[in-house]
Design a protein around this nucleic acid. Structure first.
Length: 186
DNA sequence: AATGGACTCAACCGCTAAGCT
DNA sequence: CAGCTTAGCGGTTGAGTCCAT
């Protein structure tokens, strides 16, 4: 089944960061052949990597159409909106953001947006709302599960700034009008 | 200038779905 | 249909970098 990589014998499998040489081997191989069949690709290309590792490296970093750099405010908003509808379905969210990878969006969500919500979810100034109840009535597509929207369990209470953020997310309002500083923390 | 904590993101791991024999 | 293999997904980790003190 899955390759274990650290068997006592057999071809050694490299782990950790990719070198430029490995990158160019993979890029050249895919340029001359095609992507897919990752295990045999890894072997044929002479890479001491698992197929899984090759696939990940290609999809998240080496693909020519991968966009790198800052997430734009429009993309921020789209991510929040899509996350409110799809939950942690990162690959599905990524399909709506050309050039962005599921890994990048997932990291972005956890480091920026999720943290932003966490930051304002303090115990001292709770906005005393059971969002699961409140927003079940506000989604225009009917009943919504706040758990998939925020990642927090049903019944979780949020401070006011986070409450506004979530409201913006669910109701599809322009985020910047509510949260002018945006979501970036640095 | 040194350093320790916070942050970011590439990469790995474990699981499941899909496809093949 | 069952068993096996492979691809794909989401969660997690850890090394490198940044920043405040």
């Amino acid at each position: 089944m899955e390759e274990k990589g650290c068997s006592s014998e057999g071809p050694e499998v490299r782990k950790g960061p990719w070198t430029m040489e490995e990158d160019s081997i993979l890029v050249n191989y895919i340029a001359n052949h095609s992507e897919g069949a990752w295990n045999s690709l890894a072997k044929s290309a002479g890479l001491k990597r698992t197929g899984k590792s090759c696939r990940l490296r290609w999809l998240n970093y080496l693909r020519p159409d991968v966009r790198r750099g800052n997430i734009t405010p429009e993309e921020q908003l789209l991510i929040i909106e899509l996350h409110s509808k799809l939950g942690n379905r990162w690959s599905k969210i990524a399909k709506h953001l050309p050039g962005r990878t599921d890994n990048e969006i997932k990291n972005y969500w956890r480091t920026k947006i999720h943290k932003h919500i966490n930051k304002h979810r303090d115990t001292s100034v709770l906005y005393n709302c059971d969002v699961s109840k409140q927003y079940k009535h506000q989604g225009d597509t009917g009943w919504m599960d706040i758990g998939t929207t925020t990642g927090y369990p049903t019944g979780t209470c949020f401070s006011q700034p986070s409450h506004k953020l979530i409201h913006a997310s669910i109701c599809g309002r322009k985020l910047r009008s509510i949260c002018p500083e945006g979501l970036t923390t640095r």
